[in-house]
Write a protein that binds this DNA or RNA. Sequence first.
DNA 1: GTCGGTGCAAATGCTTTGCATTGAT
DNA 2: ATCAATGCAAAGCATTTGCACCGAC
Lengths: 155, 155
Amino acid sequence: MALQTSNGSTSIRITEPLCAVFRRQLKAEGQKYTPERAQVLDAIIALDRIFEAEQVIEELRQRQHRVSKATVYRTINLLQDAGIIQRVLTEGDQAQYQLAYGESPSDTLVRLDTREVVDIDVPELAAIAERVCKDLGLRPQGHKLQIFAVAPNDS
Amino acid sequence: MALQTSNGSTSIRITEPLCAVFRRQLKAEGQKYTPERAQVLDAIIALDRIFEAEQVIEELRQRQHRVSKATVYRTINLLQDAGIIQRVLTEGDQAQYQLAYGESPSDTLVRLDTREVVDIDVPELAAIAERVCKDLGLRPQGHKLQIFAVAPNDS
DNA sequence: GTCGGTGCAAATGCTTTGCATTGAT
DNA sequence: ATCAATGCAAAGCATTTGCACCGAC
């Protein structure tokens, strides 16, 4: 499960399933919650990690769900618009995303060995960002932190 | 100038020009330091910010240097291998790079309006990364912070 | 019956590569 | 002379798009 907190403080409340959120957001835009879109979201939730479009397509294949590549890409963009997933910063060539709904998605810990991603809470970062901007006479517009780590017993 | 230090401690020494570094690294691999490669590196140094391949090509055009697109891409890869530039984490579609030789390029401020990038120093981040990893029983492997900002008078 | 959605295939845009030519030691 | 580098054009690859068909209200 992607949702989790650190240091005991429960900063996340699960109020409703993501599919309900997605349906509501689509309705708000006059768009439809189709079976294909539901299947894409389900596949993404099942992946439960940073994912690329190709992995979603593969997951759908394994589930015997016939969703075209084009629809997967289109749905990924819709999910982004809805704030349910978001692109993560990457060095690679392909876009990567993670579930983001309901959390402050700016700070994550990435396990280089397993590719797992954990959202972390770094309360001091907002202040740091503001301080840095102030020093430079700029207006802060957010930040992204990725901390990289591996299992302690590796090589 | 991209090289900079913070809080008084000189962690970076400029021992030799980057072109000399490049030449040495190429020699070590049995490769050649050609005029085209020198021009690409010069253009990158002149850009002095996070750059995309297309910007290098444009800079070379303005300098009336005839270097083919293919050579620019090939040279960018060589510079990466040599550790002189490195890819930065991005949300965009195109690869972006920055000069990396001799610095720890992990913390940057990105101006969303001008795309300028400033290396910043956030000394507390190392401790934060270690604390977070410790909480999760993992071994830290570095971090990347990007702070986003715009001019204060915007909209 | 009107819209939006889907699938397919074609288009797009960044990047890489094959190949003939060129250049340096 | 040899061996690698260059430039060009073509190929590759992830992603987007045009279009005809389909399905839901």
